[in-house]
Design a protein around this nucleic acid. Structure first.
Ligand code: FES
Ligand code: FES
Lengths: 161, 161
DNA sequence: ATAAACAGTACTTATTCAGTACGATTAGGA
DNA sequence: TCCTAATCGTACTGAATAAGTACTGTTTAT
């Protein structure tokens, strides 16, 4: 269960694409150019209806700004270096809440009386949150020293040797 | 999606209970006493069929050892101080794999060609893993300085003031 | 006016998870 | 020996959640 939803994964890919677009357009002196959902779909391979949904969520979360009408589209709301992975996840999947029994609007817990783990979760949660917030979008895009892709799951440590 | 399954939450509660049992029995000089699923159910409030399932998974993962037959039951496989939350999560929910497109035995990725985020995930994943591994079971059980329970989700920082 | 593009919502389908049930196996005790 | 208490393993069912799709409305450049 410690895994991102597909939409979140898409979102990060799309944001990455927008970073590229922003870099290209600013190189051409057109810093405010927007990319349409259709264009982003063709660039990322994500089906258009789905990417549109992702972009709408990101816009609602304030990570991208949208321009409506003909020649409209999306662009990053702020420089890529200021956008963290944690923010994107928060927008797409909601705030990080590792345990279910703390959800507000839900009965406290089936076993809050006897459960010995009522304390201590906040520390774990904060650790994860700062791990996520500590990684910026720009860092995700820059290739590591080695040429490896993210196959960390297969081995114990696939980090660059 | 960044949340634990209920079974994982149960598992940690059960392990905590086993820590107590181990402490009690060693105080009486019966260090190898086992607790039955029925007994643990009554102590934790978790329904017996469910707790049995949890215990089976934990036994398979090597975190508890089982004794069959009459007067059988479960006990911790190693001292509580050596068991981390990360281990329990790994046993219950599988290894931490934050992105779905790295699952072995699955098509690499829909957009591995153009996706700009192929690199960098291992760093995020490792950060989360060490955050999880850094918290030992004994630390979860010890109450914090304040008497607060884990309601960190409601406020920004519910840590002990 | 027209066409291109986003906004919002609602619906359907697929997947995953929690919970339950059943039969088999093992070990202790009468 | 026979019975009982307990785990082992698997398989099934129902519910919750997420993913994907569709449609209608609004905005804006040409
Ligand atoms: S599992 Fe909810 S209070 Fe412990
Ligand atoms: S999302 Fe799979 S390679 Fe980027």
């Amino acid at each position: 269960m410690i895994k991102l939803g597909k939409l979140t994964d898409y979102a990060i890919a799309v944001m990455g694409q927008l970073v590229h677009e922003a870099a290209d357009s600013s190189a051409q002196g057109e810093g405010t150019m927007s990319s349409s959902a259709h264009y982003l779909s063709s660039r990322t391979g994500i089906p258009e209806p789905t990417i549109a949904k992702v972009l709408k969520m990101l816009a609602k979360g304030g990570l991208v700004v949208s321009a409506r009408g003909a020649a409209g589209g999306y662009r990053l709301a702020k420089p890529a270096g200021q956008i963290s992975i944690g923010e994107i996840i928060a927008v797409m999947d909601g705030p990080v809440a590792i345990v279910s029994c703390v959800d507000p609007g839900q009965e406290p817990c089936m076993m809050s009386e006897t459960c010995p783990t009522r304390h201590g979760w906040s520390r774990v949660n904060d650790a994860i949150k700062s791990a996520l917030d500590g990684v910026k979008l720009t860092e995700m895009l820059s290739a590591p020293a080695c040429g490896k892709v993210h196959d960390f799951m297969k081995g114990e440590d696939a980090g660059c040797a």
